[in-house]
C-alpha cells in the first residue's frame, strides 16, 4: 500500500535530484518513508535518497516498490499551481500510480521493477570532511564552466580549493578554514571530477544551505545534503577522473 499527500516543491526536489542520474527508478516505500538508490548508465555517479514520512503532509505505506518514469512525474508537477497539494495513491490491481492535483487525476502506469537491481553502495574510506556553504560552491562552478570541463577538489589542513584549468585560462576558488563551516583534514588530498556531473547535482540543491563533502586522493567524492527542509537526505557519489592516464 502507498498513499501520500505532498507539497509540489518537495516532490520536485526529489525528482530533480533523481533526474540527474536516471530517467526511470525504483522508489522503495516503507512505513517510515521512501528511499531511492540509483546509478547512472556510465556508473560514474550514484544517488542514495531518503525522504521520511515527515516530509509528506500525509503518508501511509507498507513495503512496496514503485517503478516510476521521472519525466511523467515532471508532467504532473507542471500542473501544480501555487498552494496546490499533490495526492498519490498506488493502484495495486493495475500497478498504476494515481496522482491528483487540483481537479486533474492522472493515472500513471508504472515501470516494471524486476529488471532494476538495487545498486550496491561502495564502502569508501574517505579521510577528509568539509562542510561548506552551497552558494560558495555554486559560485565556483559558475566561474569554472567557461574554462574547463573538469575541476579539481583539493583539501589541506588550511582550507579547501576548487581548481579548474583549461588550455589557456584557469579558475581558482579558495576557501580558508575560517570560511568553512567545518574542516577535518590531516594531509592534502586532491581528486579531479567531471564538471557537468558536479554542476548538475548542485543545481538541484534547493533547501540545503550547506553541503558536506567527504574526499580522498583519486577517490570518489561523497556529497551529503538535505532536502525538504531536513526531512530528507541525499548522498551523492561521484567517481573521479584519473589525471595520469
Amino acid at each position: 500500500m502507498f498513499k501520500a499527500k505532498v507539497r509540489p516543491e518537495v516532490l520536485k526536489e526529489v525528482v530533480d535530484v533523481v533526474s540527474t542520474t536516471v530517467d526511470e527508478t525504483k522508489i522503495t516505500a516503507t512505513k517510515t518513508g521512501i528511499s531511492i538508490k540509483a546509478v547512472d548508465p556510465a556508473h560514474v555517479a550514484m544517488i542514495d535518497l531518503t525522504l521520511s514520512k515527515g516530509g509528506f503532509e500525509e503518508y501511509k505505506a507498507d513495503d512496496v516498490a514503485l517503478g516510476v518514469d521521472m519525466d511523467k512525474i515532471k508532467e504532473v508537477l507542471r500542473l501544480a499551481k501555487p498552494g496546490d497539494m499533490i495526492y498519490m495513491e498506488h493502484d495495486e490491481e493495475r500497478n498504476r500510480l494515481v496522482f491528483k492535483v487540483g481537479n486533474i487525476t492522472r493515472k500513471m502506469s508504472l515501470v516494471d521493477t524486476t529488471g532494476m537491481s538495487e545498486p550496491k553502495v561502495p564502502n569508501l574510506n574517505l579521510p577528509v570532511k568539509i562542510v561548506v556553504k552551497t552558494d560558495e560552491i555554486r559560485q565556483g562552478i559558475r566561474a569554472s564552466e567557461s574554462v574547463s570541463d573538469h575541476i579539481a577538489l583539493v583539501a589541506n589542513p588550511e582550507g579547501f580549493e576548487m581548481i579548474s584549468e583549461g588550455d589557456t585560462d584557469s579558475v581558482n576558488l579558495k576557501l580558508g578554514k575560517d570560511l568553512l563551516e567545518e574542516l577535518k583534514c590531516k594531509e592534502e588530498t586532491r581528486s579531479l571530477f567531471p564538471l557537468d556531473y558536479f554542476s548538475s547535482i548542485f543545481k538541484t540543491i534547493s533547501t540545503a544551505s550547506v553541503v558536506t563533502m567527504h574526499m580522498g586522493s583519486d577517490y570518489p567524492v561523497k556529497l551529503e545534503f538535505s532536502i525538504a527542509n531536513e526531512k530528507g537526505a541525499v548522498v551523492y557519489l561521484l567517481a573521479p577522473r584519473i589525471e595520469s592516464e
Binding site: V39, A45, P122, A239
Partner: peptide, 11 residues
Amino acid sequence: TRAQKSLDSWF
C-alpha cells in the same frame, strides 16, 4: 574522457 573512472572500481 576515458580518464573518467567508474564507481565500479570501488565496489
